[in-house]
């Protein structure tokens, strides 16, 4: 058993991190915040050329030929960097929708009652009829609301159609993005706690702040083990568990990071709110955590 990153996986992670720092650094991030709803096609093609979308396509089909663990590492980096766009939908469309693999086609997907990036997409998967734009809480994720599931037909006596089970790979890649956010907000909190001084010393010397930071790390590391293991086994129950842990690590992590930042955390200028808002968007995907909890509970009682 060698449950740790291989040298190649480390190199891949570093490579993606460097790529994203180059093509989507802090200035690009803040520019994207100032132009909500606009998808940077140049950035999308750069990602495509780098193999972000074609990562798991076989080499024979023009892909990179890597597996789920590598995709998870790449999406973790995307989450860290707050990379915008329908990343998961386009990644999953690679090989199926022409141009998706190379980043020439932007693919969005309907996900229950929500859809991200509908207007910017060239191809929409799923039935987007009746979609209405909403004023998205996340400045980096334009959202549409779709009509809810139809009520049961009392005459036919049939139950309401059950929402299609979400693609486990989509759930896992979202968990990977959440893990990236969780790791990043932990770093931001620790950096701030080291640098910010009050009462004549860094606030990180106060136990109340130290313990918030420690809990941030505990959630990240527990979620990391769950997400990476799910990437190895690809087992739907492992993926459901990974999703719950990663959602918690990202959402609660961003909340605690905001708290550590004090008044600065409440400003538009600090990046913390961008992480929190994105984490909120992601935790709604694929039926939300409830679906994962029910899946795990059902497996337990068998």
């Amino acid at each position: 058993m060698r449950f740790r990153l291989t040298d190649d996986q480390r190199a891949l992670r570093e490579g993606v991190r460097e790529l994203l720092a180059r093509c989507f650094g802090r200035e690009a991030l803040r520019a994207a915040v100032r132009a909500p709803g606009r998808l940077d096609r140049t950035l999308w093609r750069t990602l495509g050329e780098a193999g972000f979308f074609a990562l798991r396509l076989p080499e024979a089909d023009g892909g990179v030929g890597l597996g789920l663990p590598e995709a998870v590492l790449a999406f973790e980096e995307a989450g860290r960097a707050l990379l915008p766009g329908p990343l998961v939908a386009t990644h999953l469309a690679a090989g199926g929708v022409p141009g998706a693999a190379r980043g020439e086609t932007v693919v969005a997907a309907v996900d229950g009652e929500l859809a991200e990036w509908l207007d910017a997409a060239d191809v929409v998967r799923g039935d987007a009829s009746g979609a209405v734009p909403l004023r998205s809480v996340d400045p980096l994720t334009p959202l549409h609301r779709l009509p809810g599931t139809a009520a049961p037909d009392p005459v036919a006596g049939l139950p309401a159609p059950v929402a299609a089970a979400p693609d486990p790979v989509a759930v896992l890649l979202t968990a990977a993005e959440q893990l990236g956010t969780a790791g990043r907000v932990c770093e931001l909190a620790v950096q701030h706690a080291r640098a910010r001084e009050q009462f004549g010393r860094p606030i990180g010397a106060f136990q109340a702040v130290q313990h918030l930071c420690a809990d941030l790390l505990v959630r990240v590391e527990t979620a990391r083990a769950a997400v990476y293991a799910a990437a190895v086994t690809a087992d739907p129950a492992d993926i459901a568990a990974a999703r719950l842990l990663a959602d918690e690590a990202a959402v609660r992590g961003a909340r605690d990071c905001l708290q550590v930042h004090g008044g600065m955390g409440f400003t538009w200028e600090a990046d913390v709110h961008l992480h929190l808002k994105r984490a909120w968007v992601r935790e709604r995907r694929a039926g939300g955590g409830t679906q994962s909890e029910e899946l795990l509970a059902a497996a337990l009682a068998d």
Partner: peptide, 13 residues
Amino acid sequence: RRRLGRLDAEFRA
């Protein structure tokens, strides 16, 4: 049920 499901996630992790 949800609490048990969440605990299962916890111990898997």
